[in-house]
Design a protein around this nucleic acid. Sequence first.
DNA 1: ACCTGAACACCGTTCAAGT
DNA 2: ACCTGAACACCGTTCAAGT
Lengths: 221, 221
Amino acid sequence: MPEEAAQSPRRRAGRPRSVVLDRELIARAALKLVSTHGYSTLTMSAVAKSLGVSPSALYNHVDSKQELMQWIQEIVMDGVDSSVFATHALDEALFRWAQSYRDVFAEHSPLIPMIAVLPVSGSPRTLEMYEAVAGGFVRAGWKPESIVPAIVALESFIFGSALDATAPLDIFNPGQYAGKLPQFEGALDAQRATGKNNSETAFLTGLAAIIGGLLVAGTNN
Amino acid sequence: MPEEAAQSPRRRAGRPRSVVLDRELIARAALKLVSTHGYSTLTMSAVAKSLGVSPSALYNHVDSKQELMQWIQEIVMDGVDSSVFATHALDEALFRWAQSYRDVFAEHSPLIPMIAVLPVSGSPRTLEMYEAVAGGFVRAGWKPESIVPAIVALESFIFGSALDATAPLDIFNPGQYAGKLPQFEGALDAQRATGKNNSETAFLTGLAAIIGGLLVAGTNN
DNA sequence: ACCTGAACACCGTTCAAGT
DNA sequence: ACCTGAACACCGTTCAAGT
């Protein structure tokens, strides 16, 4: 199997014979593993196996599993649509950007605790995204010092919502406490009667609320 | 050391001689470990050691480490102030509740990915909290079907903000990309010049925005 | 009923040895 | 330069054996 990978591109003269692994290959293999079998199956061993290589071989190309997960983040970040800030009004752009951001990380929620804490300097695509978002705020006439807090507030909501999106549908079922929580259960029944997905409704109404609320505060005072 | 624990309370006649472990003791030991040395040191082995017992002994009282973490959650949840809904107007109550909620889980962020996905039926204190919050919405005249999505949206923002609160202060430092992101770096400099903690500002302005935005939508239409 | 000690089935990571 | 295989230092968890 390694031969297949080594022979497929026509080799330039003087190049080493069979370079099998590199960052791109490892990251893609990891992403494929995660996409098909979930993050619980993402082990260095499994990644190595899918590449037909021994686990220790990976450490010639990656420092740690943590770094490998940052590589995955970088690829995943490509799915976030930051182009809308160049084409739409700020409120509409924020709405679309936030939705793509949440949808992407709902599928990769194990990355969230890591991203929330990691310096952005390690992720050029994240920085590109921030540049696009900040540009949208600037063009809308925002006070400069209010822009970064607004972005962070939106991101907090987005990450929290992405985590929530992975929750089971019956997460609010009171179980043995049924009948003892009149106010909450009434609210729960009314929500259920709408037939809508609660996580989705919460995200959309919350997003509209926070964007609306921020826009009121961000330009005036 | 086990003798000390066994002899301290006067024993009622007929009681077994030296019951050392129980749920409360284990949970408190785990919480103490976490509070003093952080979640990275929370291993079954470390908990056992702090109790002067072998790791396998714990499994006579707890099913898994996951369950132990739920016990910690239950204790931690006590630090969230839900009493404000009985004493304050909805907007003010939401503000105070959310702040205590975020502050508590900023110190216990590793619990967040677990909580976001776990059925609330396992946590009576969480259910009590929901009952108090829902009561606040009901008394403020909210449409019943809008209450649960509002709570979930607020919780998503709170959990996301609690994760963000653990981030290093210089998380946005562009590093080697300095000078290439004019809009974002301008916004960053302006925020820095305020001298305020960015995470705190983001939480407070975001919270005001989402509460304000929700209150506009929740009662009218 | 509850504890100990050994064992199991994993992890991520290191490193000497090979090519 | 890059791979293999053995080894290390952990995890959480199980289980037979003791009291």
